[in-house]
Design a protein around this nucleic acid. Structure first.
Lengths: 253, 253
DNA sequence: GCATAACAGCGTACGCCATACGCAGAAGGG
DNA sequence: CCCTTCTGCGTATGGCGTACGCTGTTATGC
């Protein structure tokens, strides 16, 4: 007899299964007073308001007027809750690229969409990611990215690598800008004063003989000015897309 | 009267000042039994052995045969300790590029050096980075990277952006590969079985009609094979360097 | 040589966290 | 109607970072 081939794969946490709608309510027992979705929404509300550090099980429970331990009937652990928070925090993917978009315009839009989400909810960057994406919305984002590359000559593996490259870049850039935002808030300085202050600090610390190239950068005033973060973002994204374009042309020609 | 213009900048945590060697021992009082360096070394030893999660103040103190609160005479907080751990964890920078290296060979070497460090000490990726680099070794790495771009026509700001781009990529790639390593260890699976298991899981979850592009990737068997992580690394790095090359040629031509 | 001030080491205590366990009551099935 | 099965949650445990204050050591000023 063939075993149930369905669950031959790795085990999915119960709360993730319910995110895929693969879980029916058992017939017996009292009706649940909350749901995984209400809990996750409450947790996202807390994170939006007070940051990820404020998301504790007791704080989320308070948000719902419930007791701390009640949550554990729905999520197996805080890590599971975090995974689901990321899923709903990202929200639905931006959708497939517009028909008039070539791959470059499509991926640019795709990258900006993630960029905007991360700017809005910078707590997403603080969630320790614990594995490849398995939640519905996350795979939706991946699907949309893949579709941007549909018309190209890249192999399937190369498409995935390109998406990984871009999403990694977006996350990285968002991390940097959110850090200067949070750092300035923690230090009580206006964000526009953060980079100049950093530049002065480095200038005070380094010996020009030991750090000549760095000294040259400081002399050029690079760190002192408060760059538009969007310009920085566009710069890096264009470099990456140039690299992808070079690859596509090599594959095509 | 002019104020002391020296400390007009932002305040540096005392332990960081001592990392720059800017701190002399006060004349009075008993001689210290440890130093910031011995504490940081012990913490790095713990992280190397049992991961960053095992690094607690009490665990580090135990490593030194001291009491927990004794450490607070040397570091102001655990965050400060983490910052110093990153500094010594990265170790000395690889040194300036070899004279025969062009910028691309130099940056490749630079990226691989960080890659190797992060492979050796993956706990570095789990340290929540809380700001731009201000510790001696970190700035040393930056200096070496800048020197790789010395002969190019890029502006100083562009050089910095390129380095940020590359170091972000290296960190990102290292994060991904360390995640599958840690994930496989947690699930008790051999690392080589991790990606195939992930592929099977996604295949089980997604509806081919809703996720056609993703389904195509799975059909191509991309996620099932256990790629050499170094190949993945080279792929992305080459794409980025291609993009930088395009920029340099535009600036030159 | 002695009082004194500054500092090292550290014991205790507080508040916060995730979560294991078990009990009370609700709801449906036989 | 009872029995199973579930929900909600009170209690308790063990860990964490760290504020505070005490004890003993050390070098200086008298």
């Amino acid at each position: 007899m063939a075993a149930k081939t369905d669950d031959s794969g790795p085990v999915l946490p119960p709360a993730i299964e319910s995110a895929w709608g693969l879980r029916e309510r058992p017939p017996k027992g009292p009706r649940p007073g909350m749901s995984v979705a209400t809990i996750v929404d409450a947790a996202v509300r807390v994170a939006d308001a007070d940051g990820l550090a404020a998301v504790s099980m007791s704080r989320v429970a308070k948000e719902l007027g419930a007791a701390t331990m009640a949550l554990y009937r729905y999520v197996g652990s805080k890590d599971e809750l975090l995974m689901l928070m990321v899923d709903t925090g990202y929200g639905p993917s931006p959708g497939p690229p517009a028909p008039e978009d070539d791959w470059r315009a499509g991926l640019t839009r795709w990258a900006w969409a993630e960029h905007d989400v991360l700017r809005q909810r910078s707590w997403l960057l603080h969630v320790p990611i614990s594995g490849p994406p398995i939640t519905p919305q996350q795979l939706g984002w991946m699907e949309d990215g893949l579709r941007c590359l549909d018309g190209t000559t890249l192999g399937e593996g190369e498409k995935m690598s390109v998406l990984l490259l871009i999403t990694g870049y977006v996350r990285n850039e968002a991390t940097l800008t959110s850090q200067i935002a949070e750092g300035s808030q923690a230090a009580g300085v206006e964000p526009s004063e953060m980079m100049p202050a950093y530049g002065r600090l480095v200038a005070r610390l380094i010996d020009p003989a030991r750090f000549p190239a760095l000294h040259r950068v400081l002399s050029a005033g690079v760190l002192y000015q408060d760059d538009d973060p969007d310009d920085e973002f566009v710069f890096g994204l264009d470099r990456i897309l140039d690299g992808v374009e070079a690859l596509i042309q090599r594959r095509t020609g």
